[in-house]
């Protein structure tokens, strides 16, 4: 499995994502500059966290017009995997790859802490190494992570099991509707989440609960490609 981690001006979790992929899957990961127009060689594209274009205007609003985002759209259309983390999730919603939008945290404060996430759907290509209903500990760090979707969209997210992660009871840090922390598209190949699984991959970092996200993706890819 080959992974591309997109680098926008202002991305700052790009190298962390590369490190985490290599450490958890043993597979290669490249940094790909935002002007790149082709991602054909890659199986997984990670849109990492950070402050692309300073998050000026709205988080993710400017990055979505980068040349590389056309290639990310194509990649997703082909059914290949796209993972958006934090700012990456914001970019994917701005780009229309995922429904809804992310507003300023209800507290109006940036919030950074490790908290509980409930794995709502452990049947996705990104989460099948978790147990359904399991609570995992993953760090968050964002100022605009307050997920919003209108009633109709929410109903369809619920109906299609597209809500993958929710903040554990009482731990919603930002006011997200329905405690939503991460969602997947209806085709099941694009996941966006505010928490940072790449920050929870070793005992030294305080949690290893993020590992299984990356290993889930690897085995999904291997299963699809008939490799052991």
């Amino acid at each position: 499995m080959k992974t591309a981690v997109i680098q926008f001006p202002g991305s700052n979790c790009d190298e962390d994502a590369v490190k985490a992929v290599v450490a958890t899957t043993g597979e290669a990961a490249d940094l790909v500059w935002y002007t790149e127009e082709k991602l054909d060689d890659y199986d997984l594209v990670i849109v990492p966290g950070g402050f692309s274009y300073g998050d000026y205007l709205r988080a993710g609003a400017i990055a979505r017009f980068s040349p590389v985002m056309k290639a990310v759209q194509d990649h997703a259309r082909k059914g290949k995997y796209v993972l958006g983390i934090c700012n990456g999730f914001q970019i994917l919603t701005e780009a229309g790859l995922l429904p809804g939008a992310l507003r300023h945290n209800e507290s109006l404060m940036f919030q950074s802490m490790t908290l509980g996430l409930v794995v709502e759907n452990a049947a996705t290509k990104f989460t099948h190494h978790y147990d359904s209903g399991e609570t995992i500990r993953i760090p968050i760090a964002h100022g605009e992570g307050n997920y919003f979707a209108d009633e109709a969209t929410l109903r369809s997210l619920e109906a299609n099991d597209q809500i993958v992660f929710r903040y554990a009871n009482g731990e919603n840090p930002n006011g997200s509707v329905a405690d939503i922390a991460g969602i997947i598209n209806d085709k099941g190949n694009v996941l966006g989440m505010m928490p940072h699984p790449e920050r929870a991959v070793s005992e030294l970092l305080g949690s290893t609960d993020g590992k299984r996200l990356f290993t889930s993706i690897l085995t999904s890819w291997r299963d699809a490609h008939g490799r052991a």
Binding site: F65, T93, E94, P99, G100, R103, F148, D150
Partner: peptide, 8 residues
Amino acid sequence: ELLTNPVI
């Protein structure tokens, strides 16, 4: 296209 996010 850019200046607003029509979702919100």
